[in-house]
Write a protein that binds this DNA or RNA. Structure first.
Lengths: 158, 158
DNA sequence: GTACTAACGTTAGTCTCACTAACGTTTCTG
DNA sequence: CAGAAACGTTAGTGAGACTAACGTTAGTAC
């Protein structure tokens, strides 16, 4: 083997990701999802929020007040995790949490005026972040992408 | 308000996910990715493997032996996590880990015959799992999906 | 040749997210 | 009226992404 070949050999495959790995949809999904999460968390972090905050506020705005269990079902956040999220939102006066007089097992969660203002801000932040996330795709491709993901999600959640 | 209206009202928005949430690409990505991860981990778990095992074995098969740091770069697995993965693979005699005599900081990791056999099995398992994952999409749509994801990933990793 | 820097393998630890188990309380159902 | 189910809450698990630090070894600059 020549010197050159040896040198080339030393670097051969040093950074290359195997093709069979790179092409797997599951791997692509998890990598892109990780990037997406990082992007969203950084952006939302800058306005003292995280994605769970947005989910809860959007749910309250769109479908009205509800119990913690209801919010849990609407957002997909586990009810055990919901406790902490609502603590954070209540601390910031973005939601109000009061005992339900008609059913004393429950709390009624309501969005506040400040919460609505915050939600509008988050919506703008997220719009920008999604522009960044989907930057390499055309408008038509973005629609296609969202549609494919939606079909996959629907299929795997019945 | 009639009885019926009251009853309907009680269930109003109980399970509905808000539209602005459901349509966000970031949310779709993380949900589909979670489903995908669950599917892959369950399937690989049945043959005593997990996705990191596949990544390392595929990298060894495709680009030959390498140090732990090299494998780390090829697979995207952190070198601190690589230690444990290689312990698991070595325990199962799927790879061999020997000190590099030319550079005593390094270990040289090599895939064994048994490792190659195992990798072939994992490839089949993963093919089936991906069929399940992408079931609602046509062949053309699957290609499109992979292509869109690849472009996003490339863009966000330079 | 001797300092400085960098790379290596390893241990330990952080954070987020998805998810389970168990608890006391309250409400619904048979 | 008894048992099952729903509620909010606390605690804990496990995987994955990621950081910090340590001792050892190798390459680089003077």
């Amino acid at each position: 083997m020549t010197r050159k070949a040896e040198a080339a050999d030393m670097h051969y495959g040093e950074l290359k990701t195997p093709d069979r790995l790179r092409r797997r949809a599951s791997r692509l999904l998890s990598q892109v999802s990780t990037q997406s999460d990082r992007l969203m968390n950084e952006g939302l972090g800058r306005v003292d929020a995280r994605k769970w905050h947005y989910a809860v506020l959007a749910s309250l705005q769109e479908h009205g007040p509800g119990s913690q269990a209801t919010l849990s079902r609407r957002t997909g956040i586990y009810r055990s995790d919901m406790v902490g999220v609502l603590n954070e939102l209540a601390e910031r006066d973005l939601v109000e949490r009061v005992p339900d007089l008609d059913d004393r097992r429950r709390n009624v969660i309501t969005i506040t005026a400040q919460g609505r203002r915050h939600l509008r801000r988050l919506d703008k932040v997220l719009d920008d972040l999604h522009d960044e996330l989907l930057a390499p795709l055309t408008a038509a491709e973005r629609d296609q992408f969202v549609q494919l993901l939606t079909r996959l999600l629907d299929h795997h959640t019945q």
